[in-house]
Design a protein around this nucleic acid. Sequence first.
RNA 1: GCCAGCGUAGCUCAGGGGUAGAGCAACUGAUUCGUAAUCAGUAGGUCGGCGGUUCAAUUCCGCCCGCUGGCUCCA
Length: 582
Amino acid sequence: MSNNPNQVDLETLRHSCAHLMAQAVQELFPGTQVTIGPVIEDGFYYDFSRDKAFVPEDLEKIEKRMKEIAAKDLEIVHTEISRDEAIKKFTDMGEKFKVEIIDSVEEPISVYSQGDWSDLCRGPHVRSTKQIKAFKLLHTSSAYWRGDERNPVLQRIYGTAWNTEKELRVHLKRLEEAKKRDHRKLGKELDLFSVSEEIGPGLILWHPKGARIRHLMEDFWKKEHFKNGYEMVISPHTAKIDLWKTSGHTEFYKENMFSNMDIEGKEYVMKPMNCPFHIQIYKSKLRSYRDLPIRFAELGTVYRYERSGVLHGLLRVRGFTQDDAHLFCRPSQIEEEITKVLDLIVYILQSFGFFEYKIYLSTKPDKYVGADEDWESATKALENALNNKKLDFEVDPGEGVFYGPKIDIKIKDSLNRYWQVSTVQVDFNLPERFNISYIEEDGQRHQPIMLHRALMGSLERFFGCLIEHYAGAFPLWLAPVQIILCTITDNHAEYAEKLAQRFEESDIRVEKDLRNEKIGFKIREAQLQKIPYMIVLGDKEVESQTLGVRKRRSKETRTLDFETFLNELKSGIDSRLIESDD
RNA sequence: GCCAGCGUAGCUCAGGGGUAGAGCAACUGAUUCGUAAUCAGUAGGUCGGCGGUUCAAUUCCGCCCGCUGGCUCCA
């Protein structure tokens, strides 16, 4: 708690606000049972058991009642009772879910009351309902009791609460801003991508401008991988089911795989992962310790079945391209390889404008394959690599995949949201299943260590993240159109054509707007398309053979000659400049 | 997949048991203009699909498809 008496710990405040909402709901809708109402990031929710779902008008009513209750300045009283008392109390109240919770908590049972309403709760809470002032109910949804779809369906209401009206306004504004940046909205407005009902949900069409950005992402990625000792490989989109039996995917990943195809009586499936293919390439010949580490990289497109309800724009799809690589190395090389991977990750993410991360190291889960000492040394190698790079990380105990420990990296975007992108995983399983080996110095066959890693994760998701991070105003090096030439009248078209050709020869992505429209109209459209530079061409420019340069989000105009402007462009592109103003 | 809501012109949306409307975009014409919208005209829709109720359905009902917010999971 803060020293300022008016400043309440946000978690406490939000928890109390959830109670306030529950009270309002039960007063307005008798017969509704309460279940749980925890605090979440930026707010809270409460799950209710009730036949009917809440509609938006209900939220208004509930909010109004909450304000009334808050104004009553009800004291929030904490009491502790025995389990038997609690069971009797909540059974009498008809709160079956609360009774179920009482079974699983320790005595004494903690209860909070305000007025004639009370709730089973660990607390803490604010002293009076009057302290809950700045709040808003946001939306409804359904949820299952204890998150299990076999359990009864509950009606959830989400809300947010803050210490002051001003903080609430700032938060709501941020939500609005996030809505404006929604990649699905911008994808349409900027003509970047679409999803077609005719084709199928979760399958992305990259339009010319989106594909342009994708090619830029891919080109950059390939160049950096060649520089860093990777070899590019390419593998097919489907393979015989037997491959997936060997890899264990038919056993452990079945529910995520597209169902079988019959090709001349043989079963094939769309690939959900690239690893078995890269292993086949590794296995195509005998490998020596002198060849290791071997690094195979591929922008590999995979298909995974996702339940229809979870699909979401570019962020959750059924077909996506991983910037995948598999590293085969000697046990002694793990640490160095991971360190190099981390270097590359940080370099690439920073190039795209992401400078802050949350990094997790996930360790051995309850069910696992491989020897304990291998797990230990691999986990240590991951940890050492993170420490070598001075990267802060959190350990997620037991959260590793069954086949090995891993590092996950989330990037922070311009609205302070985190997105899971990069991952580095050690795999003790596939080398064993495919029985891969190399000849060691001792002349004997040894099993190599295999690492999976992705930097951007999926190009689709990373693109969605880029769109929202930049609100569609991509940095110069990524902008699908870098400059647009806008003529004042038809008289300037010839000059524009000539300039366009010169820009094209210099690999600048240029568009011309020669339409018979007013300059204000052309500028407006270019602004809405978030083109980094607008070049106005009129009598003045033709006469002096110059360019009228205007940058997006700046009303300032400059008169530059071609070479000067081209140099500015080139240096912005080559340095992958990210303008904070943009 | 489940719960709820939504689906009307390319886009954003209004309407409503008697076969549909606006703005922007498109097209045509006029205008040749100096940094976020020049004016006028034209065209555009089996109202997501299939079935049912009805004299009549885009509107009411059922099923299906898709989208949105969540639940679960993850790149």
